[in-house]
Design a protein around this nucleic acid. Structure first.
Lengths: 340, 340
DNA sequence: CTGTTAGCGCTTTCAC
DNA sequence: GTGAAAGCGCTAACAG
């Protein structure tokens, strides 16, 4: 039963037309007579024919593939963004290739195993979606306008790229201002991974707000984490070890906020009665956390969808870097209470 | 600066060798003189050459692509599995294509837009990883031993496939037995999505344990959810509305357990003082949840890795369905307390 | 509207 | 050891 997979030629033969006509039936159906089209359609169905994308992309330019680069596929924050990306990709008839950037430090064996980036370069990918600001987009990638590159969630460190995301500085500032409105005068910040675009932007929002409130730099209480639950716990411990205990903590991610709250509770403090905590991202668990988290909601799935749509658009039209800043939303929940 | 991407021919010319030799240098380095190999290696580096995978897979059989089918990319449970998959894929020099099965009900337009499965069939994918038991693996896919198919996490409904996962029935049974040992005599179960392999297995474990404990079927208190937080909340509400309130609830997923706990608290009950709750999966948040969740830990990342490794192995050797059952672990945390 | 003719970049016999 | 030649399945000029 070694029934070879049907090729376009088979369809052509069965339909009694030429090879080209079949090809055209796919790309420009209008230019084929309805009658012929019908015959081809039948042949396709009977043979269970499917276009060989490899062959198509070898000849033409497009592969229908969009490469998605993200630091950590296991992070729930990204998974929703990814969902939006997948959604839009499917709608556009494209497929996504996913690669974790964290791991792109492979020992370069012989030329068989080259950097992952190049391996994928080799697939004639149509576009690139980067969810990792720290990932260096090599100039060469953009040089000949090879393919559209869109940064999502995290603005690329190397500027000039298209971007879809929220205004992290403004959002961060909004949280601090809210905390201040609730009467908090000593607000600590658990920042994200150092030297990360997003962490920096959120840190800047925190500092800006403090400055705006007339607090001197010395008032800033900053501990660094890496966006993870565990790092939030550790940061909370360090904050508690300080002389002056803040009345509120603003963590740059919900995970860190959760880790911090867990640690605070463990230390015998009540949240928010003894100390308020706010997060950032509004991941699914934040709502059912105890206490529910006050946080910034980012339209994650939408960001993913927009980004992919942007890639597709740039693919079909011109490659002009563009930006889409989506609105964020301050979600007020029980983890923040007025200061005493 | 329209410097065309280097082809193999360019490398051959620069190295002063024939095209074939370059090709061979990649596939069978031993059969090329060290000297020539060196020259080729230099040329490759100088030109920044990368093999065009499309061309390679057009000619040969393998594409280096493994398709991953999963119901919901936004679900944090899968993301860790996916991480393991990505990890192993990278190690094997392969790339993963991700497609959500939930959405594979596209209206079939003309033959341009065929089912996603076929679209991918067209890419000469090397193997298939299925994280969705309810996804129908068409017989044709396996017919000619086309490519290895491995089910992960969730055993495929259509049997006879390779599988990597834990023994859900035994794990589920273990939770209930543990609850019973803690003195609980009235244990409710929040089951997962109906007609789902995993939900069924866990439900069976619950029933088996009850039977083993000598409880009649009437003792079983079952509410169905869909593994989500929201459905856990709804299920908890329904359980509370029943005549006899159980002293313990075993949810088929941590998300549902969290949703349930949130709801119970909202209803003024204390967990675990008034009612104990156990989950399943041990996702990251379970540990910092309040109360921390008693649950079953599945080695998710490992499962993903094993599964991908199995695909690769079957690719290189024979395609014989095999099973790898990984050990689960009962994690005892504060959400479960002895019955009064 | 339809068919013929070249390749896309690579792997693979088969000679040398 | 190495190279020449023949395609893999498809698209894109060109003719008819």
């Amino acid at each position: 039963m070694a029934k070879r997979v049907a090729r376009m030629k088979d369809v052509a033969d069965l339909a009694g037309v030429g090879l080209t006509t079949v090809s055209r039936a796919f790309s420009e159906p209008d230019k084929v007579s309805p009658e012929t089209l019908q015959r081809i359609e039948n042949a396709v169905r009977d043979l269970g024919y499917t276009v060989n994308m490899n062959a198509r992309s070898l000849r033409g330019r497009k592969s229908g593939l969009v490469l998605v680069l993200l630091p950590d596929i296991g992070n729930p924050f990204f998974s929703l963004v990814l969902k939006g990306v997948e959604e839009a990709a499917r709608a556009a008839g494209r497929v996504i290739l996913i690669v974790e950037t964290r791991r792109d430090t492979t020992p370069e064996q012989s030329y068989t195993t080259r950097s992952y980036m190049s391996q994928l370069d080799a697939r004639r990918i149509d576009g690139l979606l980067v969810l990792d600001g720290s990932f260096p987009i090599e100039p060469a990638d953009q040089e000949d306008g090879q393919y559209p590159v869109v940064a999502v969630t995290e603005r690329a460190a190397s500027g000039g790229l298209s971007y879809v995301g929220v205004d992290n500085v403004a959002a961060s500032r909004a949280v601090v201002m809210f905390l201040a409105r609730m009467g908090h005068r000593n607000i600590a910040h658990i920042a994200g991974t150092p030297h990360t675009v997003t962490a920096n932007e959120r840190l800047r929002g925190y500092r800006d707000a403090l400055a705006e409130l007339g607090r001197t730099e010395e008032t800033a209480v900053i501990e660094h984490g890496d966006f993870s639950i565990a790092s939030g716990r550790a940061a909370a411990r360090r904050i508690l070890a300080r002389d002056r205990r803040p009345t509120a903590i603003f963590a740059a991610s919900d995970e860190m906020a959760m880790g911090a709250i867990h640690e605070l509770k463990t230390a015998g403090l009540r949240v928010p009665e003894d100390i308020s905590v706010a997060g950032f991202d509004d991941i699914d668990f934040s709502e059912v956390f105890d206490p529910p988290l006050t946080t910034i909601r980012q339209p994650r799935q939408e960001m993913g969808r927009f980004a992919m749509e942007m890639v597709v658009r740039q693919l079909e039209e011109d490659i002009l870097p563009e930006e889409t800043i989506l609105p964020f939303q301050l979600i007020e929940r029980a983890s923040v209470a007025p200061a005493l």
